[in-house]
Design a protein around this nucleic acid. Structure first.
Ligand SMILES: [Mn+2]
Ligand SMILES: [Mn+2]
Ligand SMILES: [Mn+2]
Ligand SMILES: [Mn+2]
Lengths: 221, 221
DNA sequence: GAAAATATTTTGACTCGTCAAAATATAGAG
DNA sequence: CTCTATATTTTGACGAGTCAAAATATTTTC
């Protein structure tokens, strides 16, 4: 029943809520994330509130109701399954599937989605390592560390890249840092705000800690 | 650049033009085909006219310009390739893919479409036997006969069903009359306005000539 | 060839999602 | 505590796509 726009708002509220520890998502953050002017976010959120999909407190922020959360997770599931299909089956580059999925997530029927899920063999993570919610809306939770928090000499496996920016993803790919790749932490330069890492097959590289914070890892072995 | 609605109008104008020998498509027909009120069709057609996608003559009708035709064929290509994907790859029933494709045809990028085309091995007809326009907008033309025009005793192969109605398609399927199936004309009952046919593996059936007109065939062998 | 029937266009209104800019509330600095 | 900076909401407007119903044009009928 919710419109495409409404689905996107719910999804963005969910994601912003996840990444900030705050209970309420501020309207400014939501507007920025949605790429709209703040007043637009306010008016949409009021509609979502009237539809009992969010709880909205003026001047404080917004959070999802159980119903809103359910829809947000469904949209996320669609998005990530579609991305997986585009990369695995049709060979699109992982850096270019996000925008396509952003549209398709609102267009594909439940029936088709489940067929695709079966076709892909029920994948649990998308090409960026993002977990795929189950059809029942369960999000397999794990708490991987950030690459930026690892200690010198450690060997870790990249498991997730939390940034959809095309240029960043291409950068990551060029240095062989896709989910599943192993790297060793070579040097941590606190003063220089950077980290030097040794990918398995590619050349060593130095990346700023801001970028390193966007790579999630788990211990190898 | 054209909106989803505009794409659909162009497609419908193209299809109506094909099926009627008239040069101009009347606004009433277009409105009915689009499922909108006549005034709505008029206002959209005026916009398409302003965008040089159609030539519109008040109180007479509308026809596509070269540019409009190009877009219509692209949309048709998308639609039919998507239907093929849904049936062949994801196993959806051919009677239920039309509505889904009606949406997806406006959502999928050119890049993805070409990947899907490659994945499917460049199909030339969709699950209903409708020809798929080439990427350059060439529509392989053939002029198959109608089942209703066949003569008694003839053996023919069904090659196309020109009706997207779910119930009709399910009826066709139940009697083993999908594109590719062979049938023999058993009895032609002019007075009763019906035709009796013998499918290969299924039971004989009698269908009205209105329905028989929607099945296109070619001579077997 | 006039009257009636039918088709088309026009007008005015509505919803949705959006922006610009004004009004207002809240948070922060001193 | 008061003033200023920042965040949020309100207001008024817009384009897209649509409908209902009135106005008008065209076609058919007699
Ligand atoms: Mn989206
Ligand atoms: Mn992703
Ligand atoms: Mn469509
Ligand atoms: Mn078809």
């Amino acid at each position: 029943m919710p419109s495409k726009a409404a689905e996107d708002y719910l999804k963005h509220i969910f994601l912003l809520h996840q990444r900030a520890q705050e209970d309420l998502v501020p309207m400014g953050d939501l507007a920025e994330s949605m790429g709209v002017v703040p007043g637009t976010a306010t008016s949409m959120v009021k509609k979502l509130n009237a539809a009992r999909l969010v709880n909205y407190e003026a001047y404080s922020g917004v959070k999802l109701t159980a119903k809103g959360r359910r829809i947000a997770l469904q949209v996320l599931r669609r998005h990530r399954i579609i991305e997986t299909l585009l990369v695995k089956t049709f060979g699109l580059d992982w850096s270019e599937v996000h925008d396509e999925a952003e549209q398709l997530e609102h267009t594909i029927s439940d029936r088709l989605l489940e067929r695709i899920d079966v076709f892909l063999g029920h994948p649990t993570t998308d090409p960026h390592g993002d977990p795929i919610p189950s059809a029942q809306g369960q999000l397999p939770k794990s708490s991987p560390r950030r690459l930026s928090d690892c200690s010198q000499g450690e060997k870790v496996t990249i498991c997730r890249i939390v940034d959809q920016d095309q240029d960043f993803l291409r950068f990551i790919e060029q240095h062989g840092l896709k989910p599943g790749s192993q790297v060793q932490i070579d040097v941590i330069d606190e003063a220089g705000d950077s980290i030097r890492i040794l990918p398995e097959r590619k050349k060593p590289l130095i990346m700023g800690s801001h970028a390193a914070r966007k790579l999630l890892v788990e211990s190898s072995g």
